[in-house]
Design a protein around this nucleic acid. Structure first.
Lengths: 249, 249
DNA sequence: CGCGATTTGTGCACGCCTTCACAAGCGCCT
DNA sequence: AGGCGCTTGTGAAGGCGTGCACAAATCGCG
């Protein structure tokens, strides 16, 4: 263990410390740990055991320890992890120390809510610009930001240093918007439109489809119902574990 | 292959056909296939090859074939899959043939948008009731539905036959709402609040945290940036594949 | 009717992730 | 100073999911 990070040998002043390559599954859980740690810090905890943090994040402790060990972690045996230090570590790894600017395209029903969602601001992001193709929406002010026409995307992206784009348009418009985002230099896209996006290599896309989540739940409902209906089936109340399946590939 | 399903031996008239237990990963992809199939059906396609459907759903064809084979699927070698038949199959498995009633708790910023999101209605769900704890919001009409006070949840849940609940409250209120949902007989919960819910066995919880998705993208931005900054690092444009990572455990 | 082209369904191997179990390390108490 | 209890970090095993590559099956055409 004890990866680089923290005063690395080469006289290089901080920054760019030969990036550790973490398993994707671990990366997807880091934000969850971070949230739990922030809660703990607010409650005045200085240190936390893997058991305690795991409970707060909804995972088992072995998984948590292995995850943290991947980033050359700083725990003390017999004591636990230093909350403040761990927060800094994870925020650094996730690149949250720099407040990233996000462009949101599509301020219809869902986009409007996202523009006003304070969970972004409170967790390291700044919605820097809003766009829409509908002239009726352009000019409207949401949360102190003016909705601009999508044609201004390229210019605004450069001005604001935007690297992440959020697509909240109807499915039909999403691919076009994605192309424009990529052309404007955006290299990460969060897609709420129910469709597959095609983007060049080097651009990351994550998709969130609200209906799909419900459909997965519907499957489990269907399964549970068919089990209880079964002649010898044991009751639903005791079937299956209460697994808190989190989203994230 | 050739699982049960479709005229099973026992004289059982349809319904409850000894539920096949599919891998979770497969279940999470079925809704994606379903969406692609609906698109194809609208375009007038009668049959589709695994290659074609895989492209439309953004996965590789081997994976798609294996997924479909798990549900004792109906493809014809040399031809492909019957679109209409496959739609029926998947909708049956997902339990979408019955239009499921959903209760939405919390009609603040995000909840308001979810209440108006037509993607739910168009994909097999009916938002049957809206709830909030804030008296200022109770009584408001959204999309033809009146917001009720949360105390009415139990009664409404029974009346409407609600089995799925959506939590769109602040994190602090989420656990309490979850408890009330469970008490009202809800056995599946979609949680948008950034916190871990604790529920009894037999209740399924899926979590969607919008900020987490951004944080994962932020990590990749950070990684890409540190690679390009590296002395011998190859440019960002060719680093990493354009992997369309979908959400879902 | 037979043959070739095409596409499904799947056996198999590989790699990732999870989980267990335990040695190593640290602090505290005597 | 020494020992004891607690907690981390990790080696190893097992399970799950992915992707390849091919045999089996079906259609269309001559």
């Amino acid at each position: 263990m004890s990866q680089q990070r923290q005063g690395n040998a080469s006289g290089n002043a901080g920054a760019v410390p030969a990036f550790p390559d973490l398993p994707e599954a671990t990366i997807a859980r880091l934000p969850e740990y971070l949230r739990a740690l922030h809660n703990l810090a607010e409650n005045g905890s200085d240190t936390i055991s893997s058991e305690g943090l795991a409970a707060a994040a909804g995972v088992n402790s072995a998984k948590l320890r292995k995850d943290l060990s991947h980033l050359g972690s700083y725990g003390t045996r017999g004591v636990g992890y230093d909350v403040a230090l761990l927060v800094d570590q994870i925020e650094y790894i996730l690149g949250l120390d720099q407040r990233r600017a996000v462009a949101l395209v599509g301020v219809g029903n869902l986009g409007h809510a996202l523009a006003g969602y304070d969970g972004f601001a409170s967790r390291g992001f700044r919605i820097a610009a809003l766009f829409d193709a509908d002239p009726a929406l352009v000019g409207e002010t949401i949360n102190g930001l003016i909705v601009r026409h999508i044609d201004e995307l390229a210019r605004a992206a450069v001005e604001e240093g935007i690297a992440i784009g959020v697509i909240a348009t109807p499915a039909g418009a999403a691919q076009g918007v994605a192309d424009e985002l990529v052309a404007a230099g955006v290299t990460s896209i969060l897609n709420f439109a129910p469709c597959v996006l095609s983007v060049p290599a080097g651009v990351d896309v994550r998709k969130v489809d609200l209906a799909i989540e419900l459909q997965i739940l519907s499957f489990h409902e269907h399964r549970k119902a068919s089990l209880t209906a079964l002649p010898g089936g044991r009751g639903a109340a005791t079937v299956g574990g209460a697994n808190q399946e989190a989203v994230g590939s």
